[in-house]
Design a protein around this nucleic acid. Structure first.
Length: 889
DNA sequence: GGTCTCACG
DNA sequence: ACGTACGTGAGACCT
């Protein structure tokens, strides 16, 4: 039997793992605040490799430090690299512990890189007849590929690898592995920071290597090259090329003090690993280990077995045993529950699970009565989806007790997955898989035909809901969030369901007429733009547009993005006087946006059955407690610009003789700020019914109490007020109101001097977040801020700004949610025909019969301004009209 | 799938 | 010296 050796490039894999998980770094912090993404990624890679390759010997090689024989030869070797982030450095010792506990050896050697250790051992292994697998994130190591040595280079993430063998390299590049060194010597390496020959890149290097075979041979036969710039460069840079070849060559005879005999792979040390995973908070690995011992390594074998009864017309009376409390789950495979097909359902309690694909059974009395009963408690996942889904089937789901999704969101807004399995896993419950695991993803996603697979999954879901209920209720209680759940979020779910089901009538013809006009106008501007540009191009492509503006027309570059020139509004506005094309582009953008997002976009989502749009409000998504609206988003219908505002003409009442009625809170966030901070001056201004931006201007610009406030001053003060709520910086304010940074700084200083309570609040809140790791709103809604301790200035600053903003924005969200619940109660209690249709953060939109308008005019403001009792009054303004566009006081 | 831009509060 | 205001969703392009 051939012996097998596994060699892992520790540094490069750790790097890869760290950056692969970088975007979800928050998730990878253990309870001590240690970042664990790289450790986790390393472990994933290790598992993946060991699944396919069973080594007899294994080693993870690390760099010993910055100084190596290469830096001694070439000062700038690996120069210019960014400093390794602290969040990564802190993980290295733990990665080494993981390696040890996993039964692998690790090794570093002063003066040499990990590459050289790997090269040397690969050579020894080759000589001793081993089969070797090298795992790395660095293409350079592919030069080590040989008949017995394969180099696996991570492709994307850490488990997706490309295997380099001599054959693969021949196919890909047409050269041998050793010739990769010559290629690199000629082209240089920007990440290792050595130059290669001037003007020679990958293409030319490859050509030369194929022609001559090696750098040495190339210089021996350089006369064969015709006179050219390239030849001049080659001759001029000969010394560099030869030196780069040495730099690029991985040693195969480094003076390492270990041999193959020292590398025996012993397999994982389970007890140690369990302790380690516990320390790291790696719950899923822990679970896997526990299950591995008893059941084996099958993925789904982890899940505790479950029994279920397939429900039929004949046995449906068995449901009559369920009299106090059940878990229920209606499976709708598509995200949009207004239109999704129904795949099946499960109902039951305490090990008795009844499931079926037959939706007709829901209409059978034993089940229908159970669902509509106000006596029997229902425990569900995503109550709103269940209410809407069952409503489509003619069933009113009553007495919802526990919503796993909602409770989980309140406990931690970061756990905002809409997948039951994932949410369960967040709470350390693993006896249910995710939908992706069972149904697949992308085009392959489908509810399985196999009844047992599907029904087991449904039963697992119902069981998960039941098993997590107590635990989550307890956690809500510990966080003082039970009233938030019971009195606000859960009742709100029902209100939102009603609004979504009601939908808002949208007149397609109005949109189409506007669309034709826009199309015409768009064609005109398009032509003007092509004229100015002197050629046709895709105006929607920022890349092509950037080329035209900044290269062809040579307009000054104001701002760059990661990938090219910025062409955003603020940039174009600064260029407006340079060329007429700029204004044409601005107009084109404005109209194109209306056309694509609001004309075609909305037309696509009008239901043909009722001419209405039924949005979905996401109640468990935002970090602050606001709602969001999708499919379509009805919270960003144009209003600011007159052209866009016309879109609102298409939003009409659904009955003849009805009108649209709307009420909004004025300056609710600033009022919340006044309340939360307890600032006496700010509170006084609101209590006196002042125009708050004007009175702010008066204070921060030190004006007389009866002085005229000109528009510009009020505008600036308004910007300062907004800035305060968002966590201001002088730079940001200066940008926004076009003043110098020094002036902006002075405005802010004046503000804090005039409103000392606000200043104190900001400091206290950041302090609270540092101490507790979270901030909260007036209803104890929480947002965790792990980055409050980040070493990176910008991350930490961001966390600090959100720390102060979230209680403001979130409390405002709390207030309108309470108002919505009260409002819906009032509408029902008074038997009004009026329907609440939309919520836009500080605004509620209704449709109402004309005769109810006078009632609403007093009722809605009364309900809204009395939703909570703050230290300052809340102010509500109402408007109504024949369409959403025509609203008037 | 990521990036850019732009619509709203 | 850092890098620059909070919260969202959607369409278009490009890799």
């Amino acid at each position: 039997m051939t012996k097998q050796l596994l060699l892992i490039d520790g540094n490069s894999i750790v790097f890869r793992a760290f950056f692969a998980m970088h975007n979800q770094m928050d998730k990878f912090t253990n309870k001590d605040g240690l970042h664990t993404a790289a450790i986790y990624g390393f472990k994933l890679m290790l598992d993946h490799v060991l699944q396919n390759f069973k080594p007899d010997a294994a080693l993870v090689a690390f760099d010993a430090g910055k100084v190596t024989f290469r830096t001694k030869m070439y000062d700038d070797y690996k120069g210019g690299r960014n400093k390794t982030p602290d969040e990564l450095t802190e993980q290295i010792p733990y990665v080494r512990e993981l390696i040890k506990d996993s039964g692998l050896h690790s090794y570093a050697l002063a003066n040499y890189e990990a590459d050289d250790i790997i090269g040397t051992l690969a050579k020894k292994a080759d000589d001793a007849g081993y089969k070797t697998l090298i795992v790395t994130g660095d293409r350079d190591l592919t030069q080590l590929a040989s008949e017995h040595t394969t180099v696996a280079v991570t492709h994307k993430g850490v488990t997706d690898t490309e295997h380099y063998t001599p054959v693969h390299i021949e196919e890909k590049l047409g050269i041998t592995p050793r010739q990769i060194i010559d290629m690199k010597a000629l082209m240089g390496d920007s990440s290792d920071n050595y130059p290669g020959v001037t003007k020679i890149g990958e293409k030319t290097a490859l050509k030369l290597v194929k022609q001559f075979g090696s750098v040495e041979e190339l210089y021996d036969r350089i006369d064969e090259l015709k006179k050219s710039k390239m030849k001049e460069h080659l001759l001029a840079d000969e010394a560099i090329a030869r030196q780069c070849k040495t730099l690029a060559t991985i040693l195969q005879d480094a003076p390492i003090k270990i041999g193959l005999a020292d590398l025996t792979y012993t397999g994982p040390q389970k007890d140690e690993l369990v302790k380690f995973y516990q320390q790291m908070d790696f719950k899923s690995f822990l679970k896997k280990m526990g299950a591995d011992d008893v059941i084996g390594e099958e993925d789904n074998a982890q899940i505790a077995p479950i029994e279920y009864t397939v429900l039929t017309k004949d046995n449906i009376t068995e449901l009559n045993q369920l009299t106090d409390e059940v878990s229920f789950y209606l499976e709708m495979p598509e995200a949009n529950y207004h239109t999704s097909p129904f795949a099946g359902f499960v109902v039951g309690k305490d090990g008795h699970w009844f499931t079926s694909r037959n939706m007709d059974l829901l209409k059978e009395l034993p089940l229908k009565n159970l669902l509509t009963s106000s006596k029997i408690k229902k425990n569900v996942f995503n109550a709103k989806a269940q209410i809407v889904g069952l409503h489509r089937l003619g069933i009113d789901l009553e007495n919802i007790n526990f919503d796993l999704l909602l409770a989980s969101y309140l406990l931690n807004t970061n756990d905002n997955s809409n997948d039951l399995g994932q949410v369960a896993h967040e709470h350390d419950y693993y006896d249910v898989q995710t939908d992706e695991e069972v149904y697949g993803k992308g085009v392959k996603r489908a509810v399985p035909d196999d009844d047992d697979v599907f029904f087991s999954h449904l039963a697992n879901k119902a069981r998960a809901i039941e098993n997590l209920r107590k635990d989550l209720f307890k956690k809500l209680d510990e966080n003082e969030q039970t009233p938030l759940y019971t009195n606000i979020e859960l009742p709100l779910t029902r209100v939102l369901a009603k609004m979504e089901i009601a939908g808002i009538r949208v007149d397609a013809q109005t949109l189409k007429d506007m669309g034709s006009k826009l199309t015409e106008r768009l064609a005109e501007i398009e032509n003007q733009i092509y004229q100015e540009a002197g050629e046709e191009f895709n105006i929607n492509s920022t890349k092509q547009l950037g080329h035209i503006l900044f290269e062809k027309l040579k307009l000054p570059v104001i701002k760059k993005t990661k990938t090219g020139y910025s062409t955003a509004v603020d940039v174009l506005e600064k260029l407006a006087d340079k060329s007429p094309i700029v204004e044409q582009i601005l107009e084109y953008r404005q109209i194109a946006k209306l056309q694509s997002t609001y004309i075609t976009g909305l037309l696509k989502v009008i239901h043909s059955s009722d001419q209405k749009i039924h949005t979905r409000y996401l109640q468990t998504l935002t970090q602050t407690g606001r709602l969001s609206s999708v499919d379509p988003n009805l919270q960003n219908i144009p209003v600011r610009l007159p052209e866009g505002r016309l879109i609102r003409k298409a939003f009409v009442p659904s009955h003849e003789g009805w009108q649209i009625f709307s009420s909004d809170y004025s300056q609710v966030e600033l009022r919340v700020l006044a309340h939360i901070t307890g600032d006496k001056n700010l509170q006084e201004d609101f209590k006196n019914g002042e125009d708050i931006h004007a009175s702010t201007a008066r204070r921060i610009f030190h004006l007389d109490p009866d002085a005229e406030i000109d528009r510009n001053m009020r505008r600036r003060a308004k910007a300062v007020n907004f800035g305060i709520v968002y966590g201001i910086s002088d730079y940001g304010l200066a940008q926004r109101i076009h003043v110098s940074r020094a002036e902006a700084h002075e405005f802010i200083q004046n503000y804090f001097h005039e409103f000392p309570g606000v200043k104190k609040y900001i400091n206290d809140t950041i302090e609270f977040a540092r101490k507790n790791g979270y901030v909260e709103t007036i209803t104890h809604r929480r947002r965790y801020l792990p980055d409050i301790h980040a070493k990176s200035f910008s991350k930490r600053s961001f966390a600090e700004r959100t720390a102060m903003n979230t209680p403001i924005q979130g409390s405002a969200a709390d207030i309108i949610k309470i108002a919505m619940i009260h409002m819906q109660d009032e509408l029902e209690k008074r038997h009004l025909k009026t329907k609440m249709l939309l919520q836009i953060h500080d605004e509620l939109v209704f449709e109402a019969p004309k005769e109810e308008i006078p009632v609403l005019s007093t009722l809605v403001p009364k309900v809204m301004d009395s939703a909570v009792k703050l230290d300052v009054p809340l102010k509500v303004e109402s408007k109504y009209g024949d369409t959403w566009y025509d609203l008037k006081k």
